[in-house]
C-alpha cells in the first residue's frame, strides 16, 4: 500500500486522532496509561462499542436505529426476569438474544412492509421496548447473581476483561460480514443508492430486515454484557445510549448519508468518546464539560469529513 492510498484510508486518520489523544492524556496524567485504567476504559467502552457496530451497519445502509438503548433494556429485563423465575441462566441468555433480535426484526418489518421511515419506526420501538421492559418488571430491578453473568461482567481471560472479547468478536464478525459477504455488499449498495439496488435485483426489503435484526441482536449482546457488569437488570438502564452509539459511528467517519465508511472506525469512535470521558475524569474536570466536548467533537468530526470529501 503506497502513501497516497494510506492517506486516503479512513482508518488511518481516525486512528491517528485516537493515538494522539492517548499520548496527550498519558502526558497530562500518570494514571491514564495504567493497567487498571485501561481495563476500566475497555469495560466502559464495551457496551457502546457493541451497539456502535450494529449502528454502523444500519447507518451504512442509509438508515438509523434509535431503539437500541430500549431494546438493550428489554433484552436485559427478559434475562433478569427469567433468571428470577429460576430458568437456567444459559437459557435466559439465549432468550435475551432472541428477544433483542425479535425487536430488531419488528423494526425491519415496520420499515419495509409499512414503509415507515427508519427514524420514525425505531423511535416508536424506543418507546415500545422501554415500556415493555417497565411493564414486565413493574419497574423493579432484578438482581442477577448467576456465575455465568458474573463471569461475563467481572472476569478476565489472558489478562483482558471478558467484555473486551465480546467487543473484539463482534467487530471481527461484523467486519467480515460487511466486507467479505454478499450481505455486506448489498448493505453498501442499498446505502449508496437504494433505487438502483432494487432495480438491479437486490432483495432490498429482505436485506433491510436482516440489518435491523442484526442491530437488535447486537443490542441484546450488549445487554448480556451490561447484565454481567451491573449484576442486575434495571429496566431504566442504558437510556439515551443510542445517541452515544450514533456519535461513535459519526466520529469514526461513517457517512450519515449511507454507503460509505467502515464498521471498525465505529470502534475507534467509541474509544475516542470513552477517552474523553475517562481522561477528563482523571484530570478532575467536571462531567458537565465532557458533554460539551463530546458535542464539539461530533461536529468537528463531520466537518473534517466534509473537507476531506470536497477535496476529492
Amino acid at each position: 500500500m503506497n502513501l497516497t492510498k494510506l492517506k486516503s484510508n479512513p482508518i488511518v486518520w481516525i486512528l491517528m486522532v485516537a493515538v494522539l489523544m492517548a499520548v496527550v492524556l498519558s502526558f497530562l496524567s500518570p494514571f491514564f496509561m495504567t493497567v487498571g485504567n485501561m481495563t476500566n476504559l475497555s469495560k466502559q467502552v464495551s457496551i457502546v462499542a457493541i451497539l456502535a457496530a450494529g449502528q454502523a451497519v444500519v447507518i451504512i445502509s442509509g438508515g438509523i436505529d434509535l431503539s437500541v438503548g430500549s431494546v438493550l433494556a428489554f433484552s436485559a429485563v427478559i434475562i433478569g426476569t427469567l433468571i428470577k423465575m429460576d430458568v437456567d441462566p444459559t437459557l435466559a441468555l439465549v432468550a435475551g438474544l432472541v428477544a433483542g433480535t425479535f425487536a430488531g426484526w419488528i423494526n425491519g418489518m415496520v420499515i419495509t412492509r409499512a414503509k415507515i421511515p427508519p427514524f420514525i419506526a425505531t423511535l416508536g420501538m424506543l418507546g415500545i421496548a422501554r415500556g415493555m421492559a417497565l411493564v414486565i418488571t413493574g419497574g423493579v430491578s432484578h438482581p442477577v447473581l448467576s456465575p455465568l453473568f458474573l463471569f461475563i461482567g467481572n472476569s478476565k481471560f489472558l489478562g483482558l476483561p471478558i467484555p473486551l472479547y465480546f467487543v473484539l468478536v463482534t467487530f471481527l464478525v461484523v467486519g467480515i460480514m460487511m466486507h467479505k459477504t454478499v450481505f455486506g455488499r448489498h448493505v453498501y449498495a442499498i446505502g449508496g443508492n437504494e433505487r438502483v439496488a432494487r432495480l438491479q435485483g437486490i432483495p432490498v426489503d429482505r436485506q433491510k430486515v436482516k440489518i435491523y435484526a442484526l442491530s437488535g441482536f447486537l443490542a441484546a449482546v450488549a445487554a448480556v454484557v451490561m447484565t454481567g457488569r451491573l449484576a442486575a437488570t434495571p429496566p431504566s438502564v442504558a437510556q439515551a445510549i443510542e445517541l452515544q452509539a450514533i456519535a461513535a459511528v459519526i466520529i469514526g467517519g461513517v457517512s450519515f448519508v449511507g454507503g460509505r465508511g467502515l464498521v471498525i472506525t465505529a470502534l475507534i469512535g467509541a474509544l475516542i468518546m470513552a477517552m474523553i470521558t475517562n481522561g477528563l475524569n482523571i484530570l478532575g474536570i467536571s462531567s458537565f464539560y465532557q458533554q460539551v466536548l463530546i458535542g464539539v467533537v461530533i461536529i468537528v468530526a463531520v466537518w473534517l469529513d466534509n473537507l476531506k470529501s470536497s477535496n476529492r
Binding site: 467479505k180 459477504t181 454478499v182 453498501y188 449498495a189 446505502g191 449508496g192 438502483v196 437486490i202
Partner: peptide, 25 residues
C-alpha cells in the same frame, strides 16, 4: 445511470448477482 456511485465497476457489474461461495464474495 443506474449504478451505485459508492461502489467500483466490478461491484456494479455484479450487483444483485454477485459471484459467491456460501455467501462469501
Amino acid at each position: 445511470l443506474a449504478l451505485c456511485g459508492n461502489l467500483d465497476a466490478p461491484a456494479n457489474l455484479y450487483m444483485g448477482r454477485e459471484i459467491s461461495n456460501w455467501g462469501f464474495l
